[in-house]
Design a binder for these strands. Structure first.
Lengths: 153, 153
DNA sequence: AACTCAATGTCAGGACTTTGACATAGCTGA
DNA sequence: TCAGCTATGTCAAAGTCCTGACATTGAGTT
């Protein structure tokens, strides 16, 4: 049931499912689902994959850095890092040389695992991007960035 | 640490934080955080608010309907519905007249609570939308819709 | 040197969500 | 009719994530 009950041209913006927030949630959910499905075959969760990707880009990030970058709390980030460490995909010095931050680095296996999943993950993103005209992509990225910045301040 | 390490014009698309998926996640996280903060003051969670909004738009939706519309499992949807029911914001017939689906409806208090939070929530969305040129909004909505549809199929 | 402060890592507890499974209700086609 | 199929609601168990709290470290200030 409930297929397309709407069709009321009264106030178009009154339909919550047409709001930016809802579309954002819907798109994010679709992407998350697709990534979950693919990553599971490789024994990785989405936060784990994100962490590997970030460490490849910025070696030596700390747990707090990674937590901020993946939009989770430090506590959750710590769990992710411990999981990756147990699988031998990253290394962290047992003791911090400066402050308390312990910089994380990808291991050989970590690099290999990341490389193994990147093709599949990028294919998903490609499928998503191809749904819109190519010349609009840059604008879309800029707009998303602006909207996020407006709420973060 | 880690403020702006990048600045490598090698392959712009190689920076994961510039990918559509990452921007999507970031924007969604910012919105979710802002909504969480506001809704908490009114004793509602984001899924609870979304459910109230959907029931106002489409009275009589079942648990399965709502779960699909809010992008959670039926099990989670059931928890949300039970919470709302305990607070007296919605009603569900104890027995289904047709099939197993039990249509949910807002109570007077449910309508009142929804009305009380809508201003605050819409203000957040407004702040987000104002960050981009007004004439781009329609295109943005259409593009998000296309991207989501491409992954759902 | 002593104090204050922010940042980091971590522990304990709880809240939320998911996976997996099962029984029931209605529809569809042989 | 009846056997399959789908959809729905629900239970149990597990996983994930967050809130709240605390100790430690380094920088800035007095």
């Amino acid at each position: 049931m409930l297929e397309n009950v709407s069709a009321e041209p009264s106030h178009p913006t009154k339909d919550v499912t047409q709001h930016v927030g809802y579309l954002l949630k819907r798109t994010q959910a679709a992407l998350r689902g697709a990534m979950d499905k693919v990553l599971r075959e490789h024994g990785l969760t989405v936060p784990q994959y994100a962490t590997l990707e970030l460490l490849a880009l910025h070696p030596g990030m700390s747990n707090a850095d990674l937590a901020r970058a993946t939009f989770v709390t430090r506590q959750s980030g710590n769990v992710v890092l411990r999981g990756l460490q147990e699988e031998g995909l990253i290394t962290r010095p047992a003791t911090a040389d400066h402050g308390r931050a312990r910089p994380a680095h990808l291991t050989e296996e970590g690099n290999a695992r990341l490389a193994a999943v990147q093709a599949a993950v990028y294919a998903i993103e490609q499928r998503m991007v191809e749904a819109i005209p190519a010349q609009r992509l840059a604008v879309l990225l800029a707009d998303l960035d602006r909207m996020a910045a407006a709420l973060e301040e």
